Amino acid sequence: MLNFDKALDLPPQLQWKYANEPELMTWSIRARNYNTFVANLMFSFMATVILGATLIMYSVYEGMSQSWRISSCIFFFSLMLLVLLSVTHQRMNFAYRFTRSGIECCEWKDFPKWALTFLKWFSGIAAIIFIYLATIDPTFLIGALIGPGSMGLMYLSMAHSKTYQQMQTQYHHLMYEWKDFTQLAIATNREVVDLKFCHFDPRLGRIVKWNLNIFCKRKQKEAVANFIKPYLSPGVPFIKAKVNVPMSTD
């Protein structure tokens, strides 16, 4: 049995279907289950927009001391960049369990309630600080609108949008028998072992042809693929190739 890492505790919404069978291999990992190239482009674009807003903020604050001017702009840029990272570079939890019956994968992402608490307290405290500084220099009122004001609006949109919270909360359980797989590939562009499959989906009531991305660390790809190969049907292709990483769906 191979255990690459200590397994994460599954959330109560997810359970192993073949928990009574001995596990042949198991591990868990947090990974970005989407097209990282597009996400990185989005991050670069938004980071440029934030930089532009910071430069505007810097020009507006020309009446204050240089040290306060620089430090407030650096603080604003760093904070907004951190928030942007939390949006564009989210990760999902994956747990894999291999048995004689096949491969099980549990995927989940819980809504980050800590982010709401942080945004609420930060926007409130920052607003108080900026209002106090505005008694010294009225230009700080503009900073209060740009910084704490935007953070407060972000908190309100996140806290009261059920659609947004549902988008940030996912629970999936995937189960495949070894005979379902039609191709095994070691990805050359991601830390992924890719398995194409073809099986009857009782939920959809039809035959489904798709692929299963098995996320792992760089040094684990070869070991995982070589472990899987003997359990596949004879003649199943085993290749190295660039693979797509589509978003998971319910």
Rank of each mutant, 00 (worst) to 15 (best):
L84R: 03
M151W: 06
F118V: 10
L116H: 00
D137W: 11
F77E: 03
Y132S: 06
F76V: 08
S72K: 01
Q165F: 10
F76E: 00
L156Q: 08
K113Y: 09
T163S: 12
Y132F: 09
I142T: 02
W68R: 04
T117N: 14
Y132H: 07
P112E: 10
I74F: 02
Q170M: 07
K113I: 06
W114L: 10
V60C: 04
M80C: 02
M158K: 01
L141C: 11
S123A: 14
T169W: 04
F118I: 04
G152F: 01
M64W: 03
T88W: 00
S150D: 07
C105L: 13
G149N: 06
M64K: 04
S101R: 04
M57L: 15
H172S: 12
S86V: 04
I125Q: 13
Y96K: 07
F111V: 02
E107H: 01
F77Q: 05
W121F: 14
Y155W: 09
H173D: 08
L81E: 02
M167T: 01
S161G: 06
C105Q: 15
A144T: 11
Y61G: 01
L81M: 08
K113A: 11
A144N: 10
L119Q: 05
L79V: 03
Y176W: 11
E107N: 09
Q90D: 12
Y176H: 13
L85W: 13
S150V: 07
Q66W: 08
V49R: 08
V49L: 13
C73M: 01
D110N: 13
L119A: 02
A127Y: 05
Q166S: 13
G143M: 09
L55Q: 11
L79G: 05
G102Y: 14
G124M: 14
R69G: 03
A134P: 02
E62F: 07
I125Y: 00
S157P: 08
S65W: 09
R100N: 08
S86I: 03
I74E: 02
V83G: 10
T48E: 11
T139Y: 15
S123G: 07
G52T: 09
M92T: 00
W114N: 13
F111T: 13
W68N: 00
I103Q: 06
T163K: 15
R97L: 11
L79F: 02
M57A: 12
G147W: 00
S67A: 06
C106R: 12
Y132P: 00
T163N: 12
D137G: 05
I136Y: 10
A127S: 13
I74Y: 04
L85N: 12
A127T: 08
L84H: 04
R100F: 13
N93S: 14
A134V: 14
H172R: 12
F122Q: 08
C105E: 09
A144V: 01
I70R: 04
A53W: 03
G147C: 15
D137S: 07
R100L: 13
G52H: 09
L141Q: 06
G63Q: 15
L116C: 09
W121V: 07
R97M: 15
A159V: 01
H173Q: 15
S78H: 03
L145P: 00
I70M: 02
Y171A: 10
L55I: 15
I56V: 12
F76P: 01
Q165H: 07
F94N: 10
T163R: 14
F98H: 13
S86M: 03
T135V: 14
H173K: 07
S78V: 02
V49Y: 12
Y176K: 09
I142R: 05
Y58L: 10
S78Y: 01
R69S: 04
F77G: 03
W108D: 06
A159P: 06
Y61T: 05
